[in-house]
Amino acid sequence: MSISSAEKIMLAARQILDADGFAGLTVAAVCARAGVSNGSFFHAFASKDALAAHLWIDCLSSYHNAMIAAVAGNPAPEEGLRALVLAHLKWVEANRPAALLMFRHVQAEWRELVRDRQGAENQRFGAALSAWRDPWVAAGRLHELSGELFAAFLIGPAQLVCRGWLDGRATRKPSASARQLADGAVRSILRAG
């Protein structure tokens, strides 16, 4: 099976992102690594911004998949909360360039190019997380929170720790604080009893 130019370009873009970060993601670098012409690049993607937007969605999907996998098999509430926090931390550490792309370019204008795809991806993630969470809420084991508040209590502190590490303000890997961050999420979301 042959790989399309668009797939070659996305593969090359991921490799460049991993090796050189977003700054290294130029059309020339992508074309050289992918072995495609400029014409092939612009046939597949209208611009570097379009490529960046598609790469951003791929990173978001990868992150969501890691989080969904953390609650596959329907773990008990405390176990699931801890697994979600740990999945967040591990994904950021294992995918530092992708995490930097996701977190630093939250307001990028080029994200408008994939707004619909982002909405669909967020719905997919929300539905998968709700499939684990909602029965535990109904059973009185987890606090009833909006999706936004659930995410804030679950990974808000972990997100701050991750951003400090990604920005170079902290030298310890985020997972060094996994137990304390998971404890905080459990205390905030798990109902006593």
Rank of each mutant, 00 (worst) to 15 (best):
S4R: 04
S4Q: 10
A6R: 11
K8W: 02
I9P: 00
L11V: 10
A13T: 06
A13I: 10
D20A: 12
G21K: 01
T26R: 04
A29L: 15
A32N: 09
R33K: 11
R33F: 00
A34T: 06
A34C: 03
G35W: 06
F41I: 11
F42M: 03
A44F: 02
L51R: 11
H54M: 08
W56Q: 01
S61F: 10
S62G: 12
S62N: 04
H64Y: 01
V71N: 06
A72S: 09
G73A: 08
N74G: 14
E79H: 11
E79M: 06
L84H: 08
L86G: 10
L89A: 05
K90F: 15
N95T: 14
L100F: 01
F103W: 09
F103V: 05
V106R: 14
Q107W: 15
W110I: 05
R117M: 12
Q118S: 07
G119K: 11
A120Y: 08
E121A: 09
N122L: 11
F125P: 12
A127M: 11
A127L: 15
A128F: 07
R133T: 09
D134L: 15
P135L: 12
W136E: 15
A139K: 12
A139Q: 07
G140Y: 06
E148A: 06
F153P: 09
F153L: 14
I155Y: 13
G156K: 07
A158S: 15
A158K: 03
W165M: 08
D167W: 00
G168M: 06
R169W: 08
R169S: 04
T171I: 13
R172C: 08
R172D: 09
S177W: 08
A178M: 04
R179D: 15
Q180V: 11
D183L: 02
D183E: 13
R187P: 13
L190E: 04
G193V: 05
G193H: 10
G193D: 05
